[in-house]
Write a protein that binds this DNA or RNA. Structure first.
Lengths: 202, 202
DNA sequence: CCGTTCGGTGTAAGAATTTACAGTATCATG
DNA sequence: CATGATACTGTAAATTCTTACACCGAACGG
């Protein structure tokens, strides 16, 4: 529970952030509340941090991050074109087409670093409801589970397939009768599992 | 138009802001891009500011405000449950289950006021790639076009159907062979057109 | 060949900010 | 009344960040 003063300062930080896109510095908080010593503010910030309302960087100015009561944490997921020539996150990272801004509610999971999106090309997954032009958000997974749809790198090109296990052996399966191709798992790089599908209409 | 380097730096600022809640300082940008002089970064910031992509405070650290292509244009779209007992936006607006935070890039259109999302129930649109449990973002449209998938109110329940015209007459058509039902348009309230489909996997 | 743009290096001054340390005053509580 | 929590004052050092100035090299267009 916050004291009246702490609440007022928390509210000010919230407002300041919405107006200026960054947190206020300690001197700016001093001026707002007519506090003549930086330490007067620091005490409140420590209290707010101890109570879990804010989080502050080690040292460096304006590093007040609002926790929880936050302005919905939006993840900026890089969207790569349909042909990814390499693993996104290596030296030759392909240039992101753009960024998708989505929150955790929409994504359905908490995006870790390394999460990315791909524009789907082709209809090899059409029976799974993923069509040409769709966007998929891929979460890098060290060990993808059976039956998940994964983004895999085959011959330098990124494709989506369903990961299946037949008689203990792993295969990649297209969800389209016209694409019977199965590839053994060992020869490929699995970039991650598809966690969210986004389709724009018209 | 931004140069490749400028775009990369702009993207980094965007990501940094969404991860840390504040803009990076110049030394932090230096470290990210292995630029050994602060002036190397300052040049880019001046270019970005001149091109209108960012705005900077007079003096003071971490005061990089993103303009236009801003991360601030996140729409909070209310998500209603599968059974909408009334038109969302009337007096008896159903309580939103939650809110989806998405930007214009993800949505594919600029969300006007009145835009909402529905959780899909049933498989009447499965042949259109919309499955049970999916979420659809609906844009209220005064005059929906032919062949658009619309959210319509039938007997107090909200359903998705494709709007088709046969011999000059409007019908609603399910995208599933098991649902042959067609309803004349005049008897229904069309809430809007489906503009985005979002599906979470696993 | 020359000027311009882009993308830097290197250094240093100076401004802004954070942090630390030593106190003070008020109020509620046991 | 003593104690602790809250809410500061005041000062100074340390750190971080911005800005300015001088200069370099490559690529490109005329």
């Amino acid at each position: 529970m916050l004291t009246e003063r702490q609440q007022a300062i928390f509210d000010f930080i919230l407002q300041f952030r919405n107006r200026n896109g960054c947190s206020p510095s300690i001197p700016e908080i001093q001026r707002q509340f007519d506090i003549r010593s930086p330490n007067g503010v620091v005490g409140h910030l420590h209290a707010l941090e101890a109570k879990g309302y804010i989080r502050r960087g080690e040292r460096g100015s304006r590093q007040i991050d609002l926790v929880g009561h936050n302005a919905a944490s939006i993840a900026e997921v890089p969207l790569y074109g349909s042909i990814a020539a390499g693993f996104p996150e290596t030296a030759e990272t392909p240039r992101a087409e753009t960024f998708l801004g989505l929150d955790e509610t929409t994504l359905g999971f908490r995006p870790k670093n390394g999460c990315f999106a791909l524009r789907v090309r082709g209809d090899s997954m059409k029976d799974a409801g993923i069509f040409d032009g769709d966007m998929v958000v891929v979460e890098p997974t060290p060990s993808p589970r059976e039956n998940q749809i994964v983004a895999a790198l085959i011959d330098g090109e990124c494709t989506l397939k369903r990961l299946v296990r037949v008689n203990g052996k792993w295969f990649l399966k297209a969800e389209n009768a016209a694409y019977p191709a199965l590839h053994p798992r060992s020869d490929l790089v699995i970039q991650g599992a598809v966690r969210t599908v986004i389709r724009r209409m018209q």
